[in-house]
């Protein structure tokens, strides 16, 4: 197969991305994945990377509400899609119940897997407000964590689910 050296191909692309509810214009080298653009071109370093090959889940973000891997998403394919990252999760200074729970219950130790894990858990709770622990383990099974042994992550998601539900009831 041929190697691309064409200068035209190496031109930066320019587009508008919708990140955490805001439209942001950005230009980037076209080989870049969403992970690289978020971290390097938009300065959103909350999204982490542990392999860049789809093998760890550290780079998970929500795209149109689904948890996807930003390291295997071409940035050029992200125009018009709603991207949510860890930076956009809190409402002002008010942490999301998942963030509260991860902070209180030891869901984050070194914190490196945390952004990907929290975003993945958010997608789960948005779909399934009362997950069983088996469902949580299954939903989080694409997020490697090297520190916690997962138990406190699962407990954090359970606690956040309870908080979200009672907040719902409170609001209703």
């Amino acid at each position: 197969m041929s190697v691309v050296t064409d200068k035209e191909v190496q031109r930066r692309v320019h587009m508008t991305l919708q990140v955490n509810g805001e439209e942001i214009e950005v230009s980037f080298a076209p080989y870049k994945t969403l992970l690289e653009v978020l971290r390097e071109d938009l300065g959103l370093t909350g999204t982490k990377h542990g392999c860049e090959l789809g093998e760890c889940g550290a780079c998970a973000v929500l795209i149109d509400g689904e948890p996807l891997l930003s390291c295997l998403t071409l940035a050029v394919e992200c125009e018009g899609r709603a991207i949510e990252t860890i930076e956009g999760l809190a409402q002002g200074t008010q942490l999301h119940p998942l963030q509260e729970a991860f902070a209180d219950l030891g869901g984050a130790q070194c914190g490196y897997c945390t952004p990907g894990a929290v975003m993945t858990a958010k997608a789960l709770l948005d779909k399934e407000p009362s997950p069983t622990s088996q469902q949580i383990k299954e939903a989080m099974s694409g997020n490697l964590c090297r520190c916690t042994g997962y138990q406190q992550i699962v407990e954090s998601v359970e606690k956040a689910a309870t908080c979200c539900r009672s907040a719902e009831r409170g609001a209703a």
Binding site: V4, D6, Y31, H49
Partner: peptide
């Protein structure tokens, strides 16, 4: 960071268009 090599990116809207691109570009 593992990075992709350079590539041309095409984004056809239909199967027919995609098929035409494939036919033209070959392997």
């Amino acid at each position: 960071m593992m990075r992709l090599p350079w590539f041309n990116y095409r984004s056809p809207k239909s199967v027919a268009e995609a098929a035409r691109i494939l036919a033209a570009e070959g392997r």
